[in-house]
Design a protein around this nucleic acid. Structure first.
Lengths: 138, 138
DNA sequence: TCATCATGTTTTTTATAAAGAACAATATCA
DNA sequence: TGATATTGTTCTTTATAAAAAACATGATGA
Protein backbone atom coordinates (compact mmCIF):
# COMPACT_ATOMS: atom_id res chain seq x y z
CA UNK A 1 0.00 0.00 0.00
CA UNK A 2 0.87 3.60 -0.46
CA UNK A 3 1.21 4.34 3.22
CA UNK A 4 4.22 2.13 3.76
CA UNK A 5 6.22 3.83 1.05
CA UNK A 6 5.66 7.26 2.46
CA UNK A 7 6.38 6.18 5.98
CA UNK A 8 9.54 4.39 4.91
CA UNK A 9 10.90 7.35 2.99
CA UNK A 10 9.91 9.71 5.76
CA UNK A 11 11.73 7.75 8.41
CA UNK A 12 14.73 7.38 6.14
CA UNK A 13 14.91 11.14 6.12
CA UNK A 14 14.45 11.28 9.84
CA UNK A 15 11.29 13.35 9.60
CA UNK A 16 8.42 13.17 12.03
CA UNK A 17 4.91 13.16 10.68
CA UNK A 18 4.51 16.71 11.88
CA UNK A 19 7.72 17.82 10.21
CA UNK A 20 6.91 16.22 6.89
CA UNK A 21 3.41 17.61 6.99
CA UNK A 22 4.85 21.08 7.48
CA UNK A 23 7.40 20.69 4.71
CA UNK A 24 4.79 19.29 2.38
CA UNK A 25 2.14 21.79 3.28
CA UNK A 26 -0.50 19.26 4.21
CA UNK A 27 -2.15 18.67 7.54
CA UNK A 28 -0.44 16.21 9.81
CA UNK A 29 -3.74 14.54 10.59
CA UNK A 30 -4.27 13.72 6.96
CA UNK A 31 -0.73 12.54 6.55
CA UNK A 32 -1.24 10.26 9.52
CA UNK A 33 -4.33 8.80 7.89
CA UNK A 34 -2.54 8.20 4.64
CA UNK A 35 0.42 6.47 6.24
CA UNK A 36 -1.89 4.09 8.04
CA UNK A 37 -3.91 3.49 4.88
CA UNK A 38 -7.05 4.75 6.53
CA UNK A 39 -7.49 7.15 3.66
CA UNK A 40 -6.08 5.67 0.52
CA UNK A 41 -7.50 7.98 -2.07
CA UNK A 42 -5.57 11.24 -1.86
CA UNK A 43 -5.56 13.69 -4.71
CA UNK A 44 -2.71 14.19 -7.12
CA UNK A 45 -1.87 17.53 -5.60
CA UNK A 46 -1.54 16.08 -2.14
CA UNK A 47 0.60 13.26 -3.46
CA UNK A 48 2.87 15.69 -5.26
CA UNK A 49 3.20 17.85 -2.19
CA UNK A 50 4.18 14.87 -0.08
CA UNK A 51 6.57 13.48 -2.65
CA UNK A 52 8.60 16.68 -3.02
CA UNK A 53 10.23 16.94 0.42
CA UNK A 54 10.92 13.21 0.24
CA UNK A 55 12.86 13.79 -2.98
CA UNK A 56 10.53 11.32 -4.52
CA UNK A 57 7.71 11.37 -7.00
CA UNK A 58 4.18 10.16 -7.28
CA UNK A 59 5.16 7.17 -9.35
CA UNK A 60 7.40 5.78 -6.69
CA UNK A 61 4.95 6.43 -3.91
CA UNK A 62 2.33 4.54 -5.86
CA UNK A 63 4.64 1.57 -5.93
CA UNK A 64 2.83 -1.63 -6.78
CA UNK A 65 -0.41 0.21 -7.19
CA UNK A 66 0.72 1.16 -10.63
CA UNK A 67 2.76 -0.59 -13.25
CA UNK A 68 6.22 0.94 -13.53
CA UNK A 69 8.57 1.65 -10.75
CA UNK A 70 11.48 3.80 -11.62
CA UNK A 71 13.10 5.87 -8.98
CA UNK A 72 16.43 7.18 -7.96
CA UNK A 73 16.16 4.87 -5.04
CA UNK A 74 15.91 2.05 -7.51
CA UNK A 75 19.19 2.66 -9.33
CA UNK A 76 17.85 4.32 -12.45
CA UNK A 77 17.92 8.01 -11.83
CA UNK A 78 16.20 10.85 -13.55
CA UNK A 79 19.17 11.82 -15.64
CA UNK A 80 19.32 8.37 -17.12
CA UNK A 81 15.67 8.46 -17.74
CA UNK A 82 15.69 11.65 -19.74
CA UNK A 83 18.70 10.56 -21.75
CA UNK A 84 17.01 7.37 -22.75
CA UNK A 85 13.70 9.02 -23.31
CA UNK A 86 15.27 11.37 -25.81
CA UNK A 87 17.09 8.57 -27.54
CA UNK A 88 13.94 6.62 -28.01
CA UNK A 89 12.09 9.61 -29.32
CA UNK A 90 14.88 10.02 -31.82
CA UNK A 91 14.37 6.52 -33.08
CA UNK A 92 16.71 4.31 -31.16
CA UNK A 93 15.59 0.72 -31.14
CA UNK A 94 15.98 -1.89 -28.46
CA UNK A 95 18.26 -3.80 -30.76
CA UNK A 96 20.46 -0.79 -31.17
CA UNK A 97 20.84 -0.52 -27.50
CA UNK A 98 21.36 -4.21 -27.02
CA UNK A 99 24.40 -4.06 -29.25
CA UNK A 100 25.97 -1.51 -27.02
CA UNK A 101 25.07 -3.39 -23.92
CA UNK A 102 26.33 -6.72 -25.16
CA UNK A 103 29.47 -5.02 -26.22
CA UNK A 104 30.12 -3.85 -22.75
CA UNK A 105 29.35 -7.19 -21.27
CA UNK A 106 31.68 -9.06 -23.59
CA UNK A 107 34.48 -6.82 -22.48
CA UNK A 108 35.30 -5.49 -25.85
CA UNK A 109 35.31 -2.53 -23.61
CA UNK A 110 38.86 -3.18 -22.68
CA UNK A 111 40.19 -4.03 -26.10
CA UNK A 112 41.45 -1.38 -28.39
CA UNK A 113 40.67 -1.56 -32.02
CA UNK A 114 41.66 0.73 -34.76
CA UNK A 115 40.04 3.12 -37.19
CA UNK A 116 38.44 6.34 -36.36
CA UNK A 117 35.87 8.66 -37.77
CA UNK A 118 36.54 12.36 -37.73
CA UNK A 119 32.93 13.39 -37.43
CA UNK A 120 32.57 11.41 -34.27
CA UNK A 121 35.93 12.14 -32.83
CA UNK A 122 34.77 15.17 -30.95
CA UNK A 123 32.49 13.09 -28.80
CA UNK A 124 35.42 11.28 -27.31
CA UNK A 125 35.61 13.23 -24.08
CA UNK A 126 32.32 11.98 -22.83
CA UNK A 127 32.74 8.33 -23.66
CA UNK A 128 35.20 5.64 -24.36
CA UNK A 129 33.05 4.16 -27.08
CA UNK A 130 33.43 5.23 -30.65
CA UNK A 131 30.96 4.15 -33.22
CA UNK A 132 32.25 3.89 -36.71
CA UNK A 133 29.64 2.21 -38.73
CA UNK A 134 25.95 2.47 -39.05
CA UNK A 135 24.32 -0.08 -41.21
CA UNK A 136 21.10 0.82 -42.83
CA UNK A 137 20.11 -2.11 -44.97
CA UNK A 138 18.01 -4.16 -42.62
CA UNK B 1 -1.62 19.44 -18.49
CA UNK B 2 -3.23 16.20 -17.57
CA UNK B 3 -6.34 16.79 -19.63
CA UNK B 4 -4.61 16.70 -22.96
CA UNK B 5 -3.07 13.32 -22.30
CA UNK B 6 -6.37 11.73 -21.45
CA UNK B 7 -8.14 13.29 -24.35
CA UNK B 8 -5.42 12.25 -26.74
CA UNK B 9 -5.42 8.64 -25.61
CA UNK B 10 -9.18 8.56 -25.57
CA UNK B 11 -9.48 9.79 -29.12
CA UNK B 12 -6.76 7.43 -30.22
CA UNK B 13 -9.00 4.62 -28.99
CA UNK B 14 -11.99 6.14 -30.69
CA UNK B 15 -13.91 6.52 -27.46
CA UNK B 16 -16.37 9.26 -26.75
CA UNK B 17 -16.29 10.95 -23.37
CA UNK B 18 -19.44 9.09 -22.46
CA UNK B 19 -18.02 5.76 -23.53
CA UNK B 20 -14.79 6.20 -21.64
CA UNK B 21 -16.64 7.39 -18.57
CA UNK B 22 -18.74 4.25 -18.68
CA UNK B 23 -15.75 1.97 -19.15
CA UNK B 24 -13.87 3.72 -16.40
CA UNK B 25 -16.77 3.91 -14.03
CA UNK B 26 -16.63 7.66 -13.50
CA UNK B 27 -19.17 10.27 -14.35
CA UNK B 28 -18.90 11.78 -17.79
CA UNK B 29 -19.34 15.24 -16.39
CA UNK B 30 -16.27 14.85 -14.25
CA UNK B 31 -14.30 13.36 -17.10
CA UNK B 32 -15.26 16.33 -19.20
CA UNK B 33 -14.01 18.69 -16.51
CA UNK B 34 -10.73 16.85 -16.23
CA UNK B 35 -10.07 16.84 -19.94
CA UNK B 36 -10.58 20.57 -20.08
CA UNK B 37 -8.41 21.09 -17.03
CA UNK B 38 -11.24 22.71 -15.14
CA UNK B 39 -10.66 20.22 -12.37
CA UNK B 40 -7.04 19.29 -12.19
CA UNK B 41 -6.89 17.57 -8.86
CA UNK B 42 -8.50 14.18 -9.21
CA UNK B 43 -7.86 11.41 -6.75
CA UNK B 44 -5.62 8.45 -7.36
CA UNK B 45 -8.59 6.14 -7.63
CA UNK B 46 -10.20 8.22 -10.32
CA UNK B 47 -6.92 8.43 -12.18
CA UNK B 48 -6.46 4.69 -12.00
CA UNK B 49 -10.00 4.07 -13.19
CA UNK B 50 -9.49 6.33 -16.17
CA UNK B 51 -6.09 4.92 -17.02
CA UNK B 52 -7.23 1.30 -17.16
CA UNK B 53 -9.51 1.35 -20.23
CA UNK B 54 -6.93 3.50 -21.96
CA UNK B 55 -4.37 0.75 -21.42
CA UNK B 56 -2.36 3.38 -19.68
CA UNK B 57 -1.27 4.18 -16.18
CA UNK B 58 -1.25 7.08 -13.81
CA UNK B 59 2.37 7.90 -14.48
CA UNK B 60 1.79 8.50 -18.14
CA UNK B 61 -1.33 10.50 -17.58
CA UNK B 62 0.55 12.72 -15.19
CA UNK B 63 3.00 13.56 -17.93
CA UNK B 64 4.85 16.75 -17.16
CA UNK B 65 3.12 17.11 -13.83
CA UNK B 66 5.56 14.65 -12.44
CA UNK B 67 9.19 14.06 -13.20
CA UNK B 68 9.46 10.90 -15.26
CA UNK B 69 7.38 10.01 -18.21
CA UNK B 70 7.75 6.43 -19.18
CA UNK B 71 5.04 4.56 -20.95
CA UNK B 72 4.40 2.03 -23.61
CA UNK B 73 2.85 4.79 -25.61
CA UNK B 74 6.15 6.58 -25.47
CA UNK B 75 8.05 3.54 -26.60
CA UNK B 76 9.87 3.18 -23.32
CA UNK B 77 8.41 0.10 -21.77
CA UNK B 78 9.38 -2.50 -19.24
CA UNK B 79 11.60 -4.29 -21.68
CA UNK B 80 13.57 -1.13 -22.23
CA UNK B 81 13.82 -0.62 -18.57
CA UNK B 82 15.35 -3.98 -17.81
CA UNK B 83 17.76 -3.67 -20.71
CA UNK B 84 19.00 -0.38 -19.41
CA UNK B 85 19.03 -1.54 -15.86
CA UNK B 86 21.34 -4.36 -16.82
CA UNK B 87 23.57 -2.09 -18.83
CA UNK B 88 24.00 0.26 -15.93
CA UNK B 89 24.80 -2.57 -13.61
CA UNK B 90 27.44 -3.69 -16.08
CA UNK B 91 29.12 -0.35 -15.92
CA UNK B 92 27.72 1.64 -18.79
CA UNK B 93 28.16 5.34 -18.21
CA UNK B 94 25.85 8.14 -19.19
CA UNK B 95 28.56 9.46 -21.45
CA UNK B 96 28.74 6.16 -23.25
CA UNK B 97 25.10 6.28 -23.92
CA UNK B 98 25.11 9.89 -24.89
CA UNK B 99 27.44 9.09 -27.77
CA UNK B 100 24.94 6.73 -29.19
CA UNK B 101 22.12 9.14 -28.69
CA UNK B 102 23.89 12.07 -30.24
CA UNK B 103 24.80 9.87 -33.13
CA UNK B 104 21.21 9.12 -33.81
CA UNK B 105 20.21 12.71 -33.50
CA UNK B 106 22.83 13.89 -35.93
CA UNK B 107 21.36 11.60 -38.52
CA UNK B 108 24.46 9.58 -39.07
CA UNK B 109 21.74 7.05 -38.84
CA UNK B 110 20.93 7.46 -42.47
CA UNK B 111 24.44 7.57 -43.80
CA UNK B 112 26.18 4.42 -44.73
CA UNK B 113 29.79 4.07 -43.92
CA UNK B 114 32.14 1.29 -44.63
CA UNK B 115 34.12 -1.27 -42.73
CA UNK B 116 32.78 -4.10 -40.75
CA UNK B 117 33.80 -6.19 -37.85
CA UNK B 118 33.25 -9.92 -37.97
CA UNK B 119 32.83 -10.36 -34.27
CA UNK B 120 29.96 -7.94 -34.22
CA UNK B 121 28.47 -8.91 -37.51
CA UNK B 122 26.14 -11.41 -35.99
CA UNK B 123 24.31 -8.72 -34.14
CA UNK B 124 23.16 -7.18 -37.35
CA UNK B 125 19.68 -8.54 -37.34
CA UNK B 126 18.70 -6.77 -34.18
CA UNK B 127 20.25 -3.44 -34.88
CA UNK B 128 21.33 -1.15 -37.61
CA UNK B 129 24.22 0.16 -35.60
CA UNK B 130 27.56 -1.49 -35.78
CA UNK B 131 30.24 -0.53 -33.38
CA UNK B 132 33.72 -0.88 -34.66
CA UNK B 133 35.94 0.87 -32.27
CA UNK B 134 36.21 1.16 -28.56
CA UNK B 135 38.67 3.66 -27.33
CA UNK B 136 40.07 3.18 -23.92
CA UNK B 137 42.57 5.92 -23.42
CA UNK B 138 40.56 8.61 -21.73
C1' DT C 1 8.12 16.45 39.79
C1' DC C 2 5.77 19.14 37.29
C1' DA C 3 5.71 22.01 33.20
C1' DT C 4 6.68 22.41 28.34
C1' DC C 5 7.36 20.40 24.21
C1' DA C 6 7.13 16.97 20.47
C1' DT C 7 5.15 12.83 19.14
C1' DG C 8 1.11 10.60 16.66
C1' DT C 9 -3.76 9.88 17.12
C1' DT C 10 -8.89 10.81 17.04
C1' DT C 11 -12.72 14.11 16.66
C1' DT C 12 -14.96 17.87 14.37
C1' DT C 13 -15.53 21.10 10.74
C1' DT C 14 -15.27 22.92 6.00
C1' DA C 15 -13.99 22.83 1.42
C1' DT C 16 -14.28 20.54 -2.82
C1' DA C 17 -14.15 16.25 -5.59
C1' DA C 18 -17.28 13.64 -7.97
C1' DA C 19 -21.82 12.24 -9.04
C1' DG C 20 -26.36 13.03 -11.03
C1' DA C 21 -29.18 15.46 -13.22
C1' DA C 22 -30.83 18.64 -16.99
C1' DC C 23 -29.28 20.96 -21.03
C1' DA C 24 -27.88 22.48 -25.97
C1' DA C 25 -25.96 20.95 -30.25
C1' DT C 26 -24.96 17.87 -33.74
C1' DA C 27 -25.59 13.35 -35.95
C1' DT C 28 -28.56 9.39 -37.67
C1' DC C 29 -32.07 7.44 -39.88
C1' DA C 30 -37.28 6.26 -40.83
C1' DT D 1 -38.07 16.51 -41.96
C1' DG D 2 -38.99 15.45 -37.79
C1' DA D 3 -38.10 12.00 -34.07
C1' DT D 4 -34.46 9.65 -31.58
C1' DA D 5 -29.93 8.93 -30.32
C1' DT D 6 -25.10 10.70 -29.25
C1' DT D 7 -22.23 14.10 -28.51
C1' DG D 8 -20.15 17.23 -24.89
C1' DT D 9 -21.36 20.82 -21.76
C1' DT D 10 -23.23 23.28 -17.50
C1' DC D 11 -26.00 23.35 -13.28
C1' DT D 12 -27.14 21.19 -8.89
C1' DT D 13 -26.53 18.04 -5.29
C1' DT D 14 -24.06 14.88 -2.11
C1' DA D 15 -20.30 12.43 -0.61
C1' DT D 16 -15.83 12.69 1.09
C1' DA D 17 -11.06 14.61 0.98
C1' DA D 18 -8.47 17.51 3.70
C1' DA D 19 -7.96 20.92 7.20
C1' DA D 20 -8.36 22.48 11.92
C1' DA D 21 -8.78 21.49 16.50
C1' DA D 22 -8.70 18.83 20.48
C1' DC D 23 -6.66 14.98 22.54
C1' DA D 24 -3.49 11.32 24.68
C1' DT D 25 1.32 9.82 25.48
C1' DG D 26 5.77 9.99 26.06
C1' DA D 27 10.22 12.84 26.10
C1' DT D 28 13.05 16.70 27.92
C1' DG D 29 14.73 19.47 31.19
C1' DA D 30 14.68 23.10 34.87
Amino acid sequence: MIGERIKSLREKKGYSITKLADLAGVSKSYLSYIERNMQNNPSLQVMAKIAAPLDSNIEYLLGDESLPKLHENDLLDDEWRSIIQNAVEEGMSKGDFQVLKDLIRSNLWKKNMTERNASINEKKKTSNIIILHIDNDN
